[in-house]
Design a protein around this nucleic acid. Structure first.
Lengths: 203, 203
DNA sequence: ATTAGGTTAATCTATTTAGTTAAACCAACA
DNA sequence: TGTTGGTTTAACTAAATAGATTAACCTAAT
């Protein structure tokens, strides 16, 4: 039954996602994944032969999910400022729904750097930001942006969006101490980060 | 021999630091730590009874090392702008010497949140930033800073300094693609991040 | 010279874990 | 009705690993 197949495979996949996100590759247990999927270990290995197979599948999907969220910004037909606003709004909203993604991906990349190299080998980043430059060349003179600062600005934008989720465990301890709610902080960050960046790059 | 003792214990500690930073608690092996320390497993357990003991010791020390680097900024007698410059210069320089620290700490906190809660239970963050506010109250009207935006600004500063190291594995793939050198990028970031933040908070 | 304590070597135990196997079960279906 | 294939059960293997043990070794202090 192809449909039944898909159901079980998906349930395994979802269970594996939860466990891997929570414990990481090294800390995850196949038995734990089987339990969460409501099946037994034998069936788990029937669908995904090895732990590595399963992990690779989960990691590839989640990494794509994460990085694909950076893509739409290159397609939208907006002013540079609105693109920045658009990005923070969309990306942080996405991370609100997938709060464990950043920590998981960073962790696994730090423990196994070539996994990400394989996944990103295809992408031509040089071409991507040449496209952006071209697309916004008319308005660029309005901003404090040079070719040299572009990597700084791009990574700054990524940092502001992703880091609070990766460091959530620390932030929450501090916030708890000074009476700040993490969820509210995140909600406010969508606008704060955008305006912060725009202010910083405006001449 | 108390001195000899210290030597061996330190060698174990350094080896454990390397292995834990690289593999994480779950992925680390006692045999590996013993090998790197140039001793055998028996002696390893002679000094630190269990893996947990050893890990707790290493984690506590590294976490303190990390967070203590945030402290001096509250003591220096500088203008707010110079404090921001001072912080990025000092903190990023520190991370250049300990590049794996952020990834390690974030990873372990995400896998075991209450470890950090125990460690930071003592610190009174509310009092700390009340002190800052008091200390700079005369110049604060020059900036776009309200009580409400302080958490946003503080976490922004932390993000800009720490995230590039936590996400180094990803950054390097992208940089490699567009001909940017990570070390040079980091060196430039000390000044870029400071001026970026100052520009953003200036009215 | 004797002793105490750091150190090694080698072996052993107990546990956890990934992965396998084989027989039986059961629902759909042709 | 009989076959197919997803599924379970339960037992198993093989390897990895944390930790303990014991006897012997070596060196510095008493």
């Amino acid at each position: 039954m192809a449909e039944n197949d898909k159901l079980t495979e998906d349930r395994i996949f979802e269970a594996a996602t939860l466990v891997f996100e929570e414990k990481g590759m090294a800390g995850a247990r196949m038995q734990n994944i089987a339990d969460r999927a409501g099946i037994n270990k034998a069936l788990l290995h029937y669908y995904f032969r090895t732990k590595d197979h399963l992990f690779d599948a989960v990691f590839a999907k989640l990494a794509q999910k994460m990085f694909m969220k950076f893509a739409p910004i290159f397609e939208e037909d907006l002013s540079l400022e609105d693109k920045i606003r658009f990005f923070f709004r969309e990306h942080i909203t996405f991370l609100q729904k997938n709060p464990k993604l950043p920590g998981f991906i960073l962790n696994e990349i730090n423990h196994n750097p070539q996994r990400i190299k394989k996944l990103m080998k295809n992408i031509d980043f040089r071409n991507i930001w040449l496209t952006i430059l071209e697309h916004h060349k008319d308005e660029l003179h309005k901003y404090n942006i040079t070719e040299e600062t572009i990597p700084q600005i791009m990574t700054t934008i990524a940092s502001l969006s992703v880091f609070p989720f990766a460091a959530r465990g620390i932030f929450e301890v501090v916030f708890n101490n000074i009476g700040v709610d993490f969820d509210k902080y995140i909600e406010e960050r969508k606008v704060f980060a955008a305006e912060f960046v725009i202010k910083a790059i405006t001449k």
